[in-house]
Amino acid sequence: MYEKFAREAFVSKTGHIIVECGMTNLQARLGFSPDGVVLNLNREPIAL
Rank of each mutant, 00 (worst) to 15 (best):
E20I: 01
Q27D: 14
F32S: 04
K13L: 13
T14R: 02
G31I: 02
H16I: 04
T24Y: 11
V37N: 00
R43N: 14
I17V: 15
F10T: 00
L39S: 06
F10R: 01
Y2C: 07
P34M: 02
F5Q: 11
R29F: 13
E20G: 08
E8G: 00
T14L: 03
V37C: 04
D35H: 09
T14K: 01
G22H: 03
A47L: 05
V11T: 11
R43E: 12
G15D: 05
A9K: 14
A47D: 11
G22N: 08
K13R: 13
R29H: 13
F32R: 02
F10I: 05
E3V: 07
Q27N: 13
R29A: 12
R43F: 15
K13H: 08
M23C: 10
K4C: 00
H16D: 12
G31F: 11
G36C: 02
T24L: 14
V11D: 03
L48V: 10
V37H: 01
I18A: 05
R29P: 00
E44S: 13
E44K: 15
L26S: 06
K13G: 02
H16T: 12
F10V: 01
V19G: 03
R43V: 13
E3N: 04
A9H: 09
E3S: 07
N42E: 15
L39Q: 04
L39I: 06
E8I: 08
P34V: 03
Y2W: 10
P34E: 05
R43M: 15
M23W: 12
R43Q: 14
Q27P: 00
C21Y: 00
F10K: 02
A6H: 06
G22M: 01
Q27F: 13
I18R: 03
N42P: 00
L30W: 03
L48G: 08
V19I: 11
P45E: 03
N42Q: 13
G22C: 03
L30C: 08
I46W: 05
N25T: 10
I46M: 07
M23K: 14
K4G: 06
G15P: 06
V38K: 06
V19K: 10
E44N: 14
S12P: 00
S33R: 10
G31W: 11
C21W: 01
R29E: 12
M23Q: 14
Y2M: 11
I46G: 06
M1W: 09
A6I: 14
V11S: 02
F5C: 05
P34H: 07
G15K: 03
G22Q: 05
P34Y: 09
C21D: 01
K13C: 08
E3Y: 07
E44P: 04
V37G: 02
N40K: 00
E20K: 11
R29N: 12
P34T: 04
V38F: 08
I46A: 04
Y2G: 12
I17P: 01
A9C: 04
